[in-house]
Amino acid sequence: MLETTAEVMCPHCGETITLFLDLSIEEQSYIEDCSVCCQPMTVSYSTADGGLAGLNVEAAS
């Protein structure tokens, strides 16, 4: 399994958190709680050639 980490800013509290991403999946979207404020956020990412191609984090509705 190909994994990487990404540093992102929580859309709720503004703290920088680390996400662990599975790069063996070409495109994924899921809800994860912030490890600081516990508010839900939607994480969406895509991969290309075994690397991270795009990453978006926004407040979950």
Rank of each mutant, 00 (worst) to 15 (best):
L2G: 04
T4H: 09
T4R: 05
E7C: 04
E7H: 08
E7N: 14
M9S: 11
M9E: 14
M9T: 10
M9W: 00
C10D: 01
C10G: 13
P11Y: 12
P11W: 10
P11H: 08
H12C: 02
H12F: 08
C13E: 06
G14M: 01
E15M: 09
T16I: 03
I17F: 03
I17V: 15
I17A: 00
T18H: 09
T18M: 04
L19K: 01
F20N: 12
L21F: 09
L21D: 04
D22G: 05
L23C: 02
L23M: 04
L23A: 07
S24H: 14
I25G: 03
I25C: 12
E26S: 13
E26K: 13
E27S: 14
E27A: 15
S29Q: 15
S29V: 13
Y30S: 09
E32R: 13
E32M: 06
E32A: 12
E32D: 10
D33Q: 09
C34W: 01
S35N: 11
S35I: 00
S35A: 10
S35F: 02
V36E: 10
V36C: 03
C37T: 05
C38N: 06
Q39V: 00
V43I: 15
S44V: 00
S44Q: 11
S44W: 09
S46G: 15
T47Y: 07
D49R: 06
D49L: 14
G50D: 02
G51T: 11
L52A: 06
A53S: 15
L55G: 04
L55K: 00
N56E: 15
N56K: 15
N56R: 14
V57P: 00
E58S: 13
E58R: 14
A60D: 13
A60H: 06
S61N: 12
S61R: 11
S61Q: 12
S61W: 00
